[in-house]
Design a protein around this nucleic acid. Structure first.
Lengths: 187, 187
DNA sequence: AATAAAAGAGAACAAAATGTTTGTTATCAA
DNA sequence: TTGATAACAAACATTTTGTTCTCTTTTATT
């Protein structure tokens, strides 16, 4: 890909992130984005159809790494490794979030954090779905599988939201323990 | 309150609801609202500061009944009555949603359903918080109470979201059973 | 029934934001 | 070096927003 495209794309992303840290998504205008990114109006619309597009692209960029790395992790270990590996996929994910490679934390602290967590949940849902299919769960109850999948990914995201709103005082390991406790009965 | 005010307020609410059924919140303009409601521009801004205000007011209106009725219910029975009353607060809430007094269903089917469910969760959180405080729970584990509260209200909302997206095929009683199953270990 | 107060209608307005077009310049990849 | 591509700036019509007028209708009260 053209080096210029990469540059402007990156500039727009960082500008957008910066603005998101300041104000809520709905209050941000394209004008502000292009001013902050210091790119021409035409350029913005050449890259993205609209603000929604930009958000989507940013989310894909941000959660791309995290999810794919979690996918590897879960591929080898399962959601929770039964034996020796103490690290669950969930703990893995939480650590990734905390490490904050891509300045994702700033966005998760911001007013529009839910926006991102929605995207996060969609990715998560697939990941967990696969796990359920692969692991052939002992579905002793007659509760639909996709209900369980939704419950797990949903409550994980809600936990992260809670974590963020509380200024992330807990360690990923603590959170993972909490999550195990409330989810163990169905996993 | 002036009868005129009630009328226009109602007109704006129904117009807004109608539009929300058609398109997403962010795409709706004030212009469309006042055209649909057939009120003057001045009138709208006399009632609401902006679109956000309107949404908030609508949410309060919609969830007002549901939550207060649930509050009564939980006051007398607790979240889950231990003995003879088979109806949980959660089942109660689900039935209320399904009954659809205030055409809330249309809004929960719409693109912006998450918006409403966020408000819903906030109300729910308080309700459950109170229950926990009143019931003096046997917190055998060392998991923070507000984590548990968040987990319950959060996963309830996620369940409702799942329910809605699946076109509400399950009965409230079924859903309640599912919910009991995934939540029993901590309640 | 008369009246003052409140609410809405309607038009007009400035300011801001959107999305597009045009022509020019700079940069890239070959 | 050269053709292709991307970015730019400026201008543009259009839409949306929120406000400010004046005028009319409705309401509650006497």
């Amino acid at each position: 890909m053209d080096r210029r495209q990469q540059k402007t794309r990156a500039a727009i992303f960082t500008a957008f992130s910066t603005l998101l840290a300041e104000k809520s998504y709905s209050k941000i205008t394209v004008q502000e984005i292009i001013d902050t990114a210091n790119v021409g109006r035409t350029t913005f619309y050449a890259h993205f159809e609209a603000k929604d597009d930009l958000l989507k692209a940013l989310c894909e960029e941000l959660f791309g790494h995290i999810i794919s790395s979690a996918l590897d992790c879960s591929h080898t270990h399962g959601l929770y490794s039964d034996k020796n590996a103490p690290k669950s996929v969930f703990c893995h994910l939480l650590q990734h979030l905390q490490e904050d490679e891509n300045n994702i934390l700033e966005l998760l602290y911001c007013e529009s954090s839910e926006l991102f967590l929605r995207y996060f949940k969609d990715s998560l849902n697939e990941l967990i779905q696969n796990q359920f299919v692969n692991q052939n769960r002992k579905n002793n109850t007659d509760i639909p599988q996709d209900f369980l999948v939704n419950h797990i990914s949903g409550s994980f995201v809600e936990m992260v939201l809670w974590w963020i709103k509380g200024r992330m005082k807990q360690t990923p390991e603590e959170l993972d323990r909490y999550f195990r406790a409330v989810i163990e009965s169905i996993l």
